[in-house]
Amino acid sequence: MPGAGFLRLTDAIYETYIGVSMTIVWAGLSLGAVYALVALCLNITLSNTGIFNFAQPHFLMLGGFVGFELQSRWGMPLLLILIVCGILGGFVGYLEERLAIRPLGTHRGHAVLVTTVGFAVALEGAIIVYWSTDPYPFKLMASTQALDLLGGRVLPVDLVLIVLAISVMALLVLAQRTKWGLAGTAATLDSDVARLRGINVERVTTGAFIAAGALAAALGPVVGSKIGINHTIGNNLVVLTFAALAVGGFGSYVGCVLGGLITGLLQLATTYAFGDEWPLIILLAFLLAVLLLRPTGILGARSLRSV
């Protein structure tokens, strides 16, 4: 019967292309969610202090290692792992601000690039000393069964990452509208004027580093169960997260997620379409195109301030 043949044909097309494509979309979104989460953490210090903290992905790496330790050796439950990682990350964030930022004074210039990179190296060194350079397999979630969702298949951990990226973004957008968030924005735009208006800029800066450190470290175990744990995660994440931020727009939390998801999707879709030698080239070409058309990124600040 022609009708049955047509149905078989449409089934075949669905199975071959749409089903597979949706699975790649989920995988791309999941990878993009990793970039988005790191970008969100980076954006906390960026939008509240104007500092691009190169050590931020290393907090995530630290959280991954600590989470692995707490799970494998101490058998700690997930919630407690996340809390402990968050507290530790907050403390290390505080240390970074006191050791690598505060001594530079109010007119830091490009010195923060050097000191935050230095802190990243120190953090990585400490991790190597304690955990060595061995990679660790890490599964935070017991279930590894793929789920059928919207015509594709997705692993539970992938789904958690996507939901987490959107949830964290929403929380940060709300936080930006609080007194603390507004103070951070004011301090970033002009710290001298902010001081005149009674804002304690130093406290805002310290708070931003503590919050970003705590969030990144708490996310470490979740991200680690997707990408594994090893001492190179921090450096590896910096490059593509920077690309995600540039695409989405520096300073915008929604832009972080948008840029991250686009980066992840583009990476896996181009691998599928052209093979594994092309994604980075295409990604960089896309980044250049975005920056040429919108130098501030898709959702970055839309006007430049003239002084």
Partner: peptide, 18 residues
């Protein structure tokens, strides 16, 4: 299809082979 030693997702590579 090649896979980097530290790849985190092989969905695209496997899909190409499929």
């Amino acid at each position: 299809e090649k896979l980097d030693a530290e790849s985190v997702d092989a969905t695209s590579e496997l899909s190409r082979l499929m």
